[in-house]
Design a protein around this nucleic acid. Structure first.
Lengths: 138, 138
DNA sequence: CTCAGTGCAAAAGATTTGCAGCCAT
DNA sequence: ATGGCTGCAAATCTTTTGCACTGAG
């Protein structure tokens, strides 16, 4: 929790109970989560309103504490940037999300695609398929 | 328009004026478009309701006439499958979408990611950055 | 003729906004 | 103390659903 305090102080914003709880949640879950999932996760304690979750995640994105991730379902999710750049394996059967450490195309960022004269600054790659469990060991 | 008629007959569904117009639109625009963009595009003629656009795009997706694409903004877009598998360069400044013909990672599909024992069946890769115009020739 | 297809209106789900009160600094 | 932060409620935006009508086969 000390780390959370420090991070919030560093972004030059007020260090409120709600912001600490939300950032802590993102660390604990350590995977892409929607605003609603954060809200539900914290609803037991009933300390944070839905609106605050949305506004806080947006603030965190601006401050680069989280990155915005979109899967096929179109729901906006956020993932803590303390996890380094990586992609995801998403099971089409059970929905499990598995982080993929190695990024084969990281070299793309900062490079210019010649044909289109386009400067690439970021990229999203998500792989869909079926996890071991759902394939029944096959 | 003949081609449109033929395609619709082949999926074993009724060949209505609305479906023809929507499929025709997807061919003409030849890029990922949202249901609302299709609706607006056709609203001049006022022949197709919003609900029908949504239901028709869903039908087309089931029949593999279109594929569903999601960009960072979270809006669901569809693109005709008569365009072969490819990815997109999306300009963060003007929003232009440029198709990227070559897919460097097509070989991933059907392969198993060893570490996670995960069978990959499809993948999404979108590159974000700045187009020539928005970089002012730099 | 008959049922799949359509379109309105209303519902649902995710996210944003207005505003009055609260609390970190 | 005071301006940023919060949370309710209401608005907005995208998408889905219920239902009566229509038209393609």
């Amino acid at each position: 929790m000390d780390r959370v305090n420090e991070i919030l102080r560093n972004i030059g914003k007020k260090c409120t109970e709600q912001r600490k709880l939300i950032l802590q949640t993102l660390f604990e879950l350590a995977k892409p989560v929607s605003a609603d999932e954060v809200y539900e996760y914290l609803s037991e304690t009933n300390k944070v309103g839905r609106t605050t979750v949305y506004r806080t995640l947006e603030l965190f994105e601006r401050k680069k504490l989280v990155r915005r991730i979109i899967f096929k379902d179109g729901i906006i999710r956020y993932e803590s940037t303390h996890l380094k750049h990586h992609h995801h394996l998403i099971c089409l059967s059970c929905g499990e999300v598995i982080p993929l450490e190695h990024c084969a195309i990281a070299s793309l960022d900062g490079s210019v695609i010649e044909d289109a004269d386009f400067l690439v600054t970021e990229h999203f790659l998500e792989l869909y398929g079926y996890c071991k469990k759902c394939r029944g060991g096959k």
